[in-house]
Simulated scan of single mutants.
Amino acid sequence: MDTSIFAPIPLSYPGKDVTTIDKPTILMDSLASTGPIPRQLVLGRVDEQALVIHLENKGLVVVVGCGHQTLTALITHIETHFEAPLYALIGDVHFPLETGRLHIAGIDIQRRLASGSGLLSPIGKQDVLNDIALMSQKFDIVALGAHDTSDQALVLVEEHFTGEFIPVRAGKPIHFDDFVTRTKEAR
């Protein structure tokens, strides 16, 4: 099987060519990469990309990994570089509320070193509620996993997101035909 590998930074993979993407790039019909969206964290700079899939008559489905780049940066970047409206967000948005899932030497690494505004200003409940309000304005569907998002934050999204919320589960498909698209006025 011929597989293409695209990365936001130079990488190598045994037996394969890796294409470095340094800006928003169309990969094939209806599929693009955002290119790297950088963020400086306590532990260093992170360059994450997201996939953007254009669903005809619906809009853009954004598939994000860890979500370190922040929801605001992700949305701003996509709206700057892509013309179709946002429709759905799938993946993780890095909301390690109250306690993250990764602790080393008594330090909540996810919360203190990889979210919020730094070591002494980790992400808080109001930050998550603000992002949920932004999600409600921009997306019809949000499907989130729990890689870097705490269970407490997922409960907040389920309670406050005004569109369709889907908890992501490994192996469980998401069918967009099951959902009705809201009009821009309803967002």
Results as ranks from 00 to 15, higher is better:
Lys58Gln: 09
Ser12Ile: 12
Gly116His: 05
His54Ile: 06
Asp140His: 07
Thr25Trp: 06
Leu119Thr: 14
Lys23Tyr: 04
His77Ser: 15
Val180Met: 04
Thr149Ser: 14
Leu11Met: 15
Ser12Leu: 08
His94Gly: 02
Lys23Trp: 00
Gln137Asn: 12
Pro173Asn: 03
Thr183Asp: 03
Asp22Ile: 13
Glu79Pro: 05
Phe139Leu: 12
Leu27Asp: 02
Thr70Pro: 02
Leu60Glu: 03
Met28Tyr: 07
Leu55Thr: 06
Gly91Lys: 04
Val142Trp: 04
Ala7Gln: 04
Lys138Arg: 15
Thr149His: 00
Leu154Asn: 04
Asp108Gly: 07
Gly35Ala: 06
Ala84Tyr: 10
Gly171Phe: 06
Gly65Leu: 06
Asp17Leu: 09
Pro38Asn: 11
Met1Gln: 08
Arg45Trp: 00
Asp108Gln: 05
Asp92Trp: 02
Lys58Ala: 08
Lys16His: 15
Ile104Ser: 10
Arg45Asn: 08
Glu83Asn: 14
Thr149Leu: 07
Met28Val: 08
Leu74His: 08
Ile107Phe: 05
Val18Pro: 03
Asp178Cys: 03
Val155Tyr: 07
Leu97Lys: 01
Val168Pro: 02
Asp127Gln: 05
Asp47Lys: 11
Asp108Glu: 09
Pro10Thr: 10
Arg39Pro: 01
Ile132His: 02
Thr76Asp: 15
Ser4Pro: 00
Gly59Ala: 11
Gly116Gln: 00
Asp178Lys: 08
